[in-house]
């Protein structure tokens, strides 16, 4: 269990690693934490735990991604990721789904309309 901003920053870091493993470029990373998006896009250094994770994100981002960006979106536009994260608190191990899992099928369907 971590604090909220640290958790959100970890989320970004995992996502960066995941897409880096798949060798993806041209990616729009969307977070619903203004703290994370602002810290990521600013040049200020931050020595807290949160700042260190963001620094690690920046390094991974600048070394592995071309033509990509990290942006902020309101929570209402991030419902699928939210539902998935809630599900993740109950899951025993990290998972990668290649098919839309049941817990988010309805929301994905609605958003794709």
């Amino acid at each position: 269990m971590t604090s909220v901003d640290v958790g959100e920053a970890h989320g970004l870091h995992y996502a960066l690693q995941w897409l880096h493993d798949m060798r993806m470029d041209n990616v729009d990373f969307v977070v619903d934490s203004k703290m994370v998006a602002d810290a990521f896009n600013s040049n200020r250094t931050n020595v807290t735990e949160f700042g260190q994770i963001i620094a690690a994100c920046k390094e991974l981002f600048s070394s592995s991604f071309v033509n990509s960006r990290v942006e902020f979106n309101r929570r209402q536009a991030n419902e699928v990721a939210h539902a998935l994260a809630c599900e993740a608190t109950r899951s025993a191990s990290p998972n990668i789904y290649l098919k839309v899992p049941d817990c988010i099928a309805t929301i994905v369907g609605n958003e794709m309309l």
């Binding site: 269990m1 971590t2 990721a81 994260a85």
Partner: peptide, 15 residues
């Protein structure tokens, strides 16, 4: 990307 926090089981979920 999103994170969820389950305080009862002391876990953080990332999606």
């Amino acid at each position: 990307i999103n994170a969820a926090f389950a305080s009862t089981v002391n876990r953080t979920g990332l999606g």
